[in-house]
Amino acid sequence: MSLSKLFSPNTAVAAKRERRKEARPGELLDAALDLFVEKGFAATRAEEVAARAGVSKGTLFLYFQSKEELFKAVVRENISGRFTEWRAELESFEGSSPELLAYCMNVWWERVGMTRASGLTKLMMSEAKNFPELAAFYHQEVIMPGHDLIRSILQRGMDRGEFHAMDLDYAVYVVIAPMIFLILSRHSGGVCLNSEKDLDPQKFIAHQVETILNGISAPVATAARAGKKAAA
């Protein structure tokens, strides 16, 4: 190909169109996430997603066969597709299990809870009964891996003698419950909160971590932490 053809206006336009085409799935997912969180699944129409992404409805369906498939892609892009990365990160953690639990809760807030993606959890809580197929998908792709990740942290602590023996089927909810509360407080206009006080997420998590650890740490680990605080 000659240099004149390589740098011709037509070639530049074609390259720009190709880049635009490659970016479209991501733009559609961003637009869909915004609308699903703002309006819910049932109230969001495919043509609204396409319009916000700057494409036609037909273009949207070139990439996603239905609104349900679009929603699943949004969940995978923002939450479930990241579990492999998160698990590898936690498995390589070198600190104690109490430190790992605190790290996990804080990182979850930074990467999911305080982002738009946390609105997907509230959406599923409110619309799951009306869309059982999506509820089953969310349970398989988000709930179960999330539970497994927390179970592995608690099991690590028990294996090391840092946590006392516990029923993991129920203990996972001790960790999950405060994080769900944070999501609800963020996406429900503060209706869950004392209106006279603002909720600081970092302080809330720190308090929850301390409360959890005081309840599940083995006596030796509790005494060791108390000794470290006294020395400090």
Rank of each mutant, 00 (worst) to 15 (best):
S4D: 15
F7E: 14
S8W: 03
S8Q: 10
P9Y: 11
A12L: 15
A15M: 06
R17H: 11
A23F: 00
L29P: 00
L29S: 01
A32G: 15
K39L: 03
R45I: 12
E47A: 04
E47W: 01
A50H: 03
R52H: 14
G54F: 02
L62C: 05
F64E: 14
K67W: 08
E69H: 07
L70D: 13
K72H: 04
E77D: 13
E77L: 05
E77R: 14
G81W: 08
F83V: 03
E85P: 00
W86R: 07
A88H: 09
L90E: 14
S92I: 02
G95K: 01
S97R: 01
E99Y: 10
L101E: 08
W109A: 02
W109Y: 04
M114A: 06
L120T: 13
S126T: 06
S126C: 11
E127G: 13
A128N: 12
A135H: 12
A136D: 04
H139M: 11
G146N: 11
D148E: 14
G157W: 10
R160K: 11
G161S: 05
E162M: 13
E162C: 03
E162K: 07
F163E: 02
F163N: 08
H164E: 13
M166H: 01
D167H: 03
Y170K: 09
A171S: 09
V174W: 05
I176A: 03
I176Q: 14
M179D: 07
I180C: 06
L184D: 14
C192I: 03
C192T: 06
C192A: 12
L193G: 09
E196C: 06
L199W: 08
P201S: 08
F204I: 11
A206H: 05
N214Q: 12
I216M: 09
I216W: 11
A223W: 08
R225D: 07
A226L: 10
G227M: 14
A230I: 08
